[in-house]
């Protein structure tokens, strides 16, 4: 990435419209190439590819769980009388409990679990922090 806008003033024209990352060269966070690489661990394409494949597995696995949960509702309604007739929580049926609150709780749990796992994968596979404790890394993610 070429920091074409580095040092530009509000009045100076750009040779081409810069990306947001390039703009940041003039902001508080510098663009990628503005820093010396002496004390930095850069991601190699091979490392990123391996991390990408692991992240893709995590995303697909959780997405399948999500799809099964959402698709299960009409299937249960059609096939299981208990789903709409039983009373399980304050006189509410299991189907009503799911649509009125349970599914949102499940969505949040899926989100938290996926975010922790993704953070753990990234901290293990990228940036040379292989010794970092998984739990502490995941905990830091959700702070």
């Amino acid at each position: 990435m070429k920091p074409s806008s580095a040092g530009s003033t509000p009045e100076s024209p750009h040779p081409r419209p810069p990306s947001a990352g390039e703009h940041r060269a003039g902001a508080d966070f510098p663009a990628d190439s503005d820093f010396p690489s002496d004390n930095e661990v850069r991601d190699t394409p091979a490392e990123v590819d391996a991390a990408f494949r692991a992240q893709r597995g995590v995303a697909l696995a959780y997405f399948v769980v999500f799809l099964v949960l959402v698709a299960a509702f009409p299937v249960l309604t059609m096939t299981l009388q208990w789903w709409t007739q039983a009373r399980v929580f304050g006189d509410l049926s299991p189907g009503f409990v799911a649509a009125a609150g349970g599914l949102y709780l499940v969505f949040a749990i899926i989100g938290i679990a996926a975010a922790r796992l993704s953070a753990s994968v990234e901290s293990r596979m990228l940036g040379g922090q292989h010794g970092l404790d998984d739990d502490s890394a995941a905990g830091e993610e959700l702070k």
């Binding site: 510098p30 990628d32 394409p45 990123v48 990408f52 990228l126």
Partner: peptide, 23 residues
């Protein structure tokens, strides 16, 4: 490949976090 490193790598995240800590 460059797009992939930028999109799926975390170097920029680490740099921004380090800058935030320094600031």
């Amino acid at each position: 490949q460059a797009h992939w490193v930028r999109m799926h790598g975390t170097a920029a995240d680490r740099r921004a976090e380090r800058m935030a800590r320094l600031t």
